[in-house]
Design a protein around this nucleic acid. Structure first.
Lengths: 241, 241
DNA sequence: GCAAAAGTGTTCTTCGTACACCCATGG
DNA sequence: CCATGGGTGTACGAAGAACACTTTTGC
């Protein structure tokens, strides 16, 4: 890194953009904001905003998340996804955007925040392949976020971030089924999920909210990584050479 | 993203930093540059530099890599690692750095580029835990890079990026052993590596450069992801509950 | 009782591991 | 012919998939 010459390296704006995912009505949904200003006025976009002068990137992401959803970092899993900086991705000026992935439980309470003209939860697949394209390169970002979420469910305890503080094994299984778009054997899933060390912590109480026999309630355990992992069904896709 | 007001959001500089890894003499090594200017003058740092006004981030990383090593993108695997933007990580000004991970084969040819005062390949573990600390937050970045490399070897064909264009199974195995710091059963490794679909493509020729019976030479195959993956030995670390 | 969902047991197969063994070269 | 590493065969045990079966609720 040599000396910094402002005339040679003009100002760059740094933003954070959020891929906020949740599960509503057995669908994987992403939070979208309708843009109230040009460019892309009226189009849907991922929530986000400028990083403030003395603000860490993670903090900026948490702040934006709170502004748009009212959620705090304790309720939601947030992690950095990737950074997007193509020269003309924003027509106004050079904008480098650090994207974050957030996984939230389905929140029945208040949703929209302050400055957003309109916000909605859109089914993730519709947002990716729908008729009205997202603003900027946000479909690219969303695609990367979905891929990250899908693969991280396999080897981390992240699926629990989609559930409330207490949940049943069946509710957890629905998370996997919705995110992977695949059905799983309830019996084997139960064994694997309860068998993975540090994944689930029984609360001792039960619930019948899913119907049928009362189910044990669990909290998320301390483990971040799953041993052994839950493997996504192979779907016998390719056979090469 | 609301309107942009330069007085409220002052200039931010964006740089790329590179974690360039290679294997030399059975050690995982990282490329370091000695800084010729303040801050951290005289200290070792990861190679990197400012992103140019009309330059994509990936392109900036490739350019810096070429400047420092002479390597082009065809020889080396390069991928984005993460972005670091703590407010005071650079004492001069706000600098957001997009870090890249590069995996290169051991190059016997020319090494140092143009503007680097001094460059060296340092064993990665020494650079992380050595007596002279790296400049800026580069130890944090290096640590993340090493972790990424180690885990990606399991489920991608990335290990081949450490080898030359043609290599033997034993040479590939050495890569895994060095990166993971573990010894692997040569016979089982052979079966798994040659059995993974699209991982290795036999050239038809053999070599005796490793001694003993001639070994088949391979090129990297088309597959990016390994099916099935090569699993890192468990080392029977934890046994819980 | 019946439907519905939770949870357990069992069988079969597949896969990882350990290691015996043979192959092809250089010296 | 012997040392060295390449490569194959095999046996055993662990883990995953499929599914029969029992348990406990609501209606």
């Amino acid at each position: 890194m040599s000396g910094y010459d402002p005339s040679r390296y003009p100002a760059v704006a740094v933003t954070v953009d959020l891929v906020v995912l949740t599960i509503r009505a057995d669908e994987l949904c992403v939070l979208l904001i309708r843009r109230g200003e040009a460019p892309y006025k009226g189009r849907w976009a991922l929530p986000g905003g400028f990083v403030r002068p003395d603000e860490d990137l993670d903090r900026a992401a948490a702040r934006e998340l709170h502004e748009e959803t009212g959620l705090s970092r304790d309720d939601v899993h947030v992690e950095q996804l990737a950074t997007y900086g193509a020269p003309r991705r924003d027509p106004r000026m050079r904008v480098v955007s650090v994207a974050y992935l957030a996984l939230a439980p389905d929140l029945p309470g208040p949703r929209s925040g302050s400055d957003a003209a309109a916000a909605r939860w859109a089914p993730a697949v519709d947002a990716l392949a729908g008729n009205d394209r997202l603003a900027f390169d946000h479909e690219l970002i969303l695609g990367d976020g979905l891929e990250r979420a899908r693969s991280k469910l396999e080897y981390t305890s992240l699926a629990a971030a989609f559930c409330g503080p207490e949940f049943t094994v069946a509710e957890l299984r629905r998370v996997y089924e919705v995110v992977w778009g695949d059905s799983l054997d309830a019996r084997n899933f139960h064994r694997k999920a309860t068998g993975a060390t540090g994944f689930l912590e029984p609360t001792g109480t039960t619930t019948t909210r899913d119907g049928g026999r009362p189910a044990q309630l669990y909290r998320r355990g301390a483990a971040e990584l799953l041993h052994p992992p839950l493997i996504r069904p192979a779907h016998d896709a390719q056979t090469r050479t």
